[in-house]
Structure formats: C-alpha cells, structure tokens
Amino acid sequence: MGATRRPGHARQNDQDPALTTGTVARRLGVAPTTLRSWERRYGIGPADREQGRHRRWTAVDVARVEEMCRLTALGVPPAEAARVALRETETEAAIPAPRAARRGGGREALSLPLGNVRQECRGLARAAVRLDAPAVESQLRLTLGEYGFITGWQEVMAPALHAVGRKWASSGERYVEVEHLLSWHVSSALRRTPGAGAGRDAGASRAAPPVVLACVPGEQHTLPLEALTAVLGERELPTRMFGAALPAEALYEAVRRIGPSAVVLWAHSRNTADRALVHLVADTEWGVRGARTHPAVLVAGPGWSPTAGAYAPGVERLTGLRTAADRIEALLAA
C-alpha cells in the first residue's frame, strides 16, 4: 500500500471518473444547493476547477464530502465537520462523538445494510437516515425522472425501505422516524408524479372498465400497491385506488357500483390474507339479468399463497411490478 495523500493535494488519475455536482448530490442524497453552500462556506468542493467549465468531482473530492455528511449526521456542527473532513478524509475523524451518538452507537447505528444496490438507493437511504427531507424529495424526483416507476421502485425505493425496516426490527424503536419520513415521501412521489393515475380515469378513452386496487381489511402496507397504481396510470389505464385496510363491506359496495374489469387485493401478511374476502369479491355480480358479469380477481403481496387458484376459481396471483402491470393491461385489452 502506498502512503496516504492529503485530500487537498490529491491529483486526479486520468482513469478516475470526474463527476458533476448533480451526480454527486444524487449519489450522496444531498441537495445540490447544500453542496454549493458547503463549498462556499467551508471549502468542501472540487479541488480541481477549470475556468469556464463545470466543476468536476474526483473520487477524493467525493470521499471528503461523504465524510462531512457522516459527521453532520452524527450531530457534529458543519464548520467543525468541514475542518475534520478537509484535514483527513481517509481516516476516522479524530474528534469525540456527540453524547447522543455515543449512547446510540455512533457511525454503525446510522448505517443501513443495503448490499449491492444502485448509488441512487444509497443516496436515498443516507438522506433518510439524516432526516433530510429536501434531499429525500430531490433524490426521489431525480430517480423517477431518470428511471421511471418500475426501475425506480424496484431498484431504489423498495431496497431503501426494506433496509430501514430491517434496521428498525433489529434496533427497537430507534429507526421508526426514519421509516415514517421515507415512506411518506415515497408515497407522495408516487402520487404526485405526472402520469400516476391514482384514482383518476387516465384511460377514459378506453372501453374497459377501471381496475380496483385495495388493501385487505387490517392491512396498512400500501406502498407496493401505490407503485402499481402509478405504473398503471403511466400506461393510461383507468384505476380506482382505495388504499389501506378497506373494510369488506365497503369493498363489496365499491365493486358492485363500479363494475371493474379486475380487482387487485394486496396482503403483506398471512394474517390479513382472507380467503372469504376473495370469494366475496369473485362472486360479486352486476349488470342486467341474463348478462351479469364478474370481475377478474388478482391477489398480490407475500401474504397470499402461491397457489392462488385455491382461493376461488380463476383467481391469479401477481408477482413483480412489471409482470403485474403487464397482466392487468392484457386483461383490460381483452
């Protein structure tokens, strides 16, 4: 191993990728305005700048600002964190952790086990752990703009949410606030993005009746169903989204009044997956005597048995966001 060089004296290798400020912001889950503010106030920014060109960040520059993010997340004042990050990026900060951080386990307590994921997922998780709402919102907006709903959900949002959930389960109540903040912003992003047709007739020009989407009674996990609703809206398919824990009687009335092409029932837990409810929906009829019809019933979520047909004749189990959307689109086109 060679000698460690100070960040300020490091030179970019010709093979090292140089990143823009926007790319660094997405990777770290920090708003671009925050990076510019840190550069202006504390000198935390690209070491090499060429006049008349955009600033480019080397790997050492990114490591320096990442260390600043870590220290400020622990409660270190920004000015002090900047001094430490500038002095020594590649070693642990030589300052005592704040009292709250010492009680909570310091750096390890603020990390999430993400595994092999996209950099945007890491940035989203870092921003959520810091409770940096503007950075979370910015990361979600950029993710959906670049990757769309399916990839954005499967490779960025869902892994970050699962990591927070696992950390919460293993750490008592310490990560509840992180999960709530991240869930709220993910839900808002899925419903706010243009093309997400939750609750509207995005496909009013199509002849097919809408799709009803609802969580079964007692089920509060709505985000996967919201992601599916967003994808269907993006494809201009008509939907009626009823959200969490819809009572059985209300679901029956909604199906009877709307006359949907299909009904999607989401259950995250085996405790909420209700066979009787599937029968109720499958047996619901509407239309004139002699030409009455039923909806297609689709179950989704880990709570349902893989052999969905055992619940009622013709019931299908949806797996995966893309395949679920493709199957629903095929049903509406039939």
Rank of each mutant, 00 (worst) to 15 (best):
P7V: 04
P7S: 05
G8Y: 05
G8I: 10
A10E: 09
D16M: 04
A18M: 12
A18H: 02
L19Q: 06
L19P: 00
V24W: 12
R27D: 03
G29R: 13
V30W: 04
A31Q: 10
P32W: 09
T33P: 00
T34D: 04
L35G: 01
E39W: 02
R53K: 15
R53C: 02
R55C: 01
A59N: 05
V60P: 03
V60I: 04
R64C: 11
T72I: 15
G75Q: 07
V76G: 02
E80N: 02
E80K: 14
R83G: 04
V84S: 15
E90V: 05
A93C: 04
I95N: 00
P96K: 14
P96L: 11
R99N: 00
R99G: 01
A100N: 03
R103E: 09
G105T: 10
R107Q: 07
N116L: 08
R118C: 00
Q119N: 02
E120S: 13
R122T: 12
L124P: 00
A125S: 14
R126D: 06
L131E: 07
P134S: 11
R141L: 13
L142S: 13
E146D: 12
F149W: 08
T151F: 02
P159W: 11
H162T: 08
V164W: 11
K167R: 15
G172P: 01
G172C: 10
R174G: 01
R174C: 00
V178K: 03
V178P: 09
L181T: 03
H185S: 05
H185N: 07
V186W: 07
L190C: 05
L190M: 09
R191W: 02
T193I: 08
P194F: 08
G195D: 06
G195Y: 12
A196V: 06
G199C: 04
A204K: 13
A207R: 15
A207K: 14
V216G: 06
G218Q: 09
G218M: 10
G218Y: 12
E219T: 10
E219C: 11
T222E: 15
T222D: 06
T222A: 13
P224R: 14
P224W: 13
L225M: 15
E226Y: 07
A230T: 13
V231G: 03
L232Y: 07
E234R: 15
R240F: 10
A245K: 08
L246G: 01
E249S: 12
A250Y: 02
Y252R: 15
E253Y: 12
V263F: 06
V263L: 05
L265F: 08
W266C: 01
S269T: 11
S269V: 02
S269G: 00
R270H: 11
D274S: 13
L280D: 00
V281S: 03
A282I: 07
A282C: 02
D283K: 15
D283C: 06
D283T: 13
T284E: 04
T284H: 03
W286P: 07
G290N: 10
A291F: 09
V297Q: 09
G301H: 12
P302H: 11
G303R: 12
G303P: 02
G309A: 14
A312F: 11
G314S: 09
R317P: 01
L318Q: 06
L321R: 11
R327M: 06
L332R: 15
A333M: 05
